[in-house]
Design a binder for these strands. Structure first.
Lengths: 242, 242
DNA sequence: CGCCTAAAATCTACAATGTAGACATGCCGG
DNA sequence: CCGGCATGTCTACATTGTAGATTTTAGGCG
């Protein structure tokens, strides 16, 4: 399950690229390079030409590993989601869900530029046609819940509530924390200061609170609330667990 | 609040464009046309040239109403969010939050192509520098909660949990319902059928369940769970705070 | 009425993108 | 050695955002 794959060997070998030509290309290498590009310089930096020059290859050659740019993006999201480990056999499903939530959060913080892909790519692809790597978490979590005693139908509901909340939290957190860590607080306050005081009194009053945001704690709280709520509403195997 | 603006008069009148030249342009008209374009043909159809020809104007002229394409996108999200009405003076904050959730859900269903903007644009703009129309819901909901008796800090927490869940739900729902309503179910099942049965047994077994998804009910359930959980965890004015 | 200036509209141009299609070049079995 | 096929490489083209020059329009003033 847990693949946690890292970039094979020569991650960058950027400009010098003396003898980098030789080594055979593979889908994994291409995707890894693409991911690195996105992580380092943002989504719009991932162009065929730039990726080609990062790999010291002709841009056209990349079409052998991804049918087009969209497929490349899908590949990147798949690669990132592969970093997420889900163990379907853990009887402590609540603990498992909690751990996964934190893992996914950290993953999002590690690859903030990929998050837009994570949330928007599925919007333009019918569920059944998505890359398998994207669907695997869904399947595994369903398995986890069903094994824990939920009916298939309820497992789906739980999954939806859970993942919905999870993605929502990630979006929230990434919005409030600026990527640039230096002028973070300054920019934040400066930005808030720009707001007309009469129209945005509470927002401005919360500047300090907004500045230090403990995402992990907030996420954990939310998960707790959600899980207890779910246990109460659905005939939950929570009691059976102990 | 609720503006629900439509394009003034001549919505399309494409090539003929007899006397359409006359009427003065305005930011609202431009944004409305842009929104229509996105609604009708998707995000990537919104190019300067296409928008220009939809308005029978030179594409360059549009830069008078939006500094660049990104600003145009921001304008569209602002316009869409303007459709959401929030009344800060309602003492029944839970009912209010529930209503807003449903309204936002319907809004997302009305403008599915705009949802990617709604969730990703804020990721690339520091909170304080976002279009005011985007921040207004936040401010208003904070007001609602504070008026209801929450401390400012707790109001922020509630807001985060609430909006997080809400956005998550919307993403979930839009992912599962294909935009094209005709071959929806067929495509879905066909898509699922493509999945390797050994790897995705539960997902495939849930095909029927996935096909009829009552988003409103699911959202309502989730909100209920969330609100009760929040009331329990935060010293909530639900039980009449001292 | 005639002109002159500022603003608004339009045109031209350019760099960058995704990608089709033609071309070259290596590799490998006969 | 030689055909053929996979694999790289080059050129070309349509489309994009947008800078800058150029034209057209509007309006004040003698």
């Amino acid at each position: 399950m847990a693949r946690t794959m890292t970039i094979p060997q020569q991650t960058a070998g950027d400009e010098a690229g003396s003898g980098a030509r030789k080594n055979r290309l593979s889908r994994e290498v291409v995707l890894a390079a693409a991911l690195k590009l996105v992580d380092d310089e943002g989504l719009e930096a991932l162009t065929m030409r730039r990726l080609g020059q990062a790999l010291h290859r002709d841009p056209m050659g990349l079409y052998r590993y991804a049918a087009n740019r969209a497929a490349l993006l899908d590949g990147v999201t798949e690669l990132v989601l592969d970093e997420l480990a889900i163990f379907g056999d853990d009887p402590d499903w609540q603990g498992q869900l909690r751990r996964i939530a934190h893992d996914l959060r950290l993953l999002a913080l590690r690859h903030p530029n990929v998050v837009p892909l994570l949330v928007t790519r599925p919007l333009s692809t019918p569920l059944g046609l998505r890359p398998l790597g994207t669907l695997r978490p869904l399947e595994q979590i369903l398995g986890l819940l069903i094994d824990a005693g939920f009916t298939a139908s309820n497992a789906l509901h739980v999954y939806r509530a859970y993942y919905g909340f999870l993605y929502g939290h990630i979006l929230n957190e990434l919005q409030e924390f600026i990527v640039d860590p230096d002028e973070n607080e300054a920019l934040l306050r400066l930005g808030l200061h720009r707001l007309p005081p009469k129209e945005f009194p509470r927002l401005r009053a919360l500047a300090a609170e907004l500045a230090d945001y403990d995402g992990a704690a907030e996420l954990d709280e939310g998960i707790t609330i959600l899980l207890s709520g779910l246990s109460a509403h659905l005939a939950a195997p929570l009691i059976k667990k102990v």
